[in-house]
């Protein structure tokens, strides 16, 4: 029974990684940029949700939607201000800018509210129920269902809507898409908006599930989500979901075997191994890059 319990623990953790990894992978897919500020958008989402619930006494679902909406706007602003003018610059310039944006967000938040952690208000009375000796809290169920719902919604947007079609086209070949009359700028902005909204949602879910939030909370989950995205094959949306879940479960197994102090190391070993053995990730095709 202990193993089923551990699996439940791993999937809960993994679904949060997956939600963040989606934003990484979408942005990479479309402009080939590792957006290191993504983890900080996740943090902003957690704080927006915190203020919405604790200060303005909003319903959890309204708070979740508010956090998603504001994060979407923040994501678009970041893209327009910091990345747009670098679209034709070297990739390393964009990457360094992303790190700069990340630090700017973190320390702006610290400047205004200090670095001390905040505790998320209790939004549901946690009740546990047992299935086959496994304790599952109502919170885990809710978090899992919200994550799955958002992932399904994303699949729908990408494959069934006009903007999704435009995103796929721009990702495939931006110049050709432009010639076909697709507004590339708006499509890229939409990608940032959707990715950031998912990060915002992950922030609120993280806050509800783990209770503690602080201005630097986005750093490690951000890097873990990046690993998840690479693991699944960066730029591939289902890859990010699978990568997130696999990473969550692997980390849990490492702790369960009694090596809890090696958990973070295990995540980075996965990154190193995947880069050596299969750089294109689980779902990646071994395509050569166009020069």
């Amino acid at each position: 029974m202990e193993w089923i319990q551990q699996l439940v623990n791993g999937i809960s953790l993994g679904s949060i990684y997956a939600l963040i990894a989606l934003g990484y992978t979408m942005v990479y897919g479309i402009i080939k940029l590792i957006n290191f500020a993504h983890g900080d958008v996740f943090m902003l989402g957690a704080f927006i949700g915190f203020f919405a619930i604790a200060r303005w006494e909003m319903n959890v679902f309204l708070a979740l939607i508010l956090a998603m909406a504001l994060c979407a706007i923040i994501g678009v602003i970041i893209e327009r201000v910091a990345y747009k003018r670098l679209r034709n610059a070297t990739r390393i310039a964009a990457l360094i800018t992303a790190i700069g944006v990340s630090l700017l967000i973190e320390y702006t938040v610290i400047f205004f509210r200090g670095a001390s952690p905040a505790a998320y208000p209790t939004v549901f009375e946690t009740s546990n129920f047992e299935i086959l000796g496994v304790k599952i809290s109502t919170q885990s169920i809710l978090i899992l269902s919200v994550s799955i719902f958002l992932m399904v919604l994303l699949q729908f947007i990408v494959h069934k809507t006009k903007i999704g079609k435009a995103m796929r086209a721009v990702s495939h070949d931006a110049d050709a898409a432009k010639l076909m009359g697709i507004n590339v700028d708006n499509t890229i902005s939409a990608t940032f908006a959707i990715g950031s909204a998912l990060a915002g949602a992950a922030g609120v879910i993280f806050g509800i599930y783990y209770t503690r939030i602080d201005p630097l909370m986005g750093v490690l989950p951000g890097i873990k989500a990046f690993i998840a995205a690479v693991l699944g094959g960066i730029g591939i949306i289902p890859g990010a979901m699978v990568g997130g879940l696999v990473l969550g479960v692997v980390e849990t197994i490492v702790s369960a075997l009694g090596y809890s102090l090696w958990r973070d190391a295990a995540a980075f070993v996965i990154l190193i191994l995947i880069l050596i053995i299969r750089p294109s990730g689980i779902f990646g095709k071994n395509a050569r890059e166009k020069v």
Binding site: E2, R212, M217, S255
Partner: peptide, 12 residues
Amino acid sequence: VDFKSTLTNIKG
């Protein structure tokens, strides 16, 4: 932030 796996071990 996630202590559940180790706690599950302790519970066992």
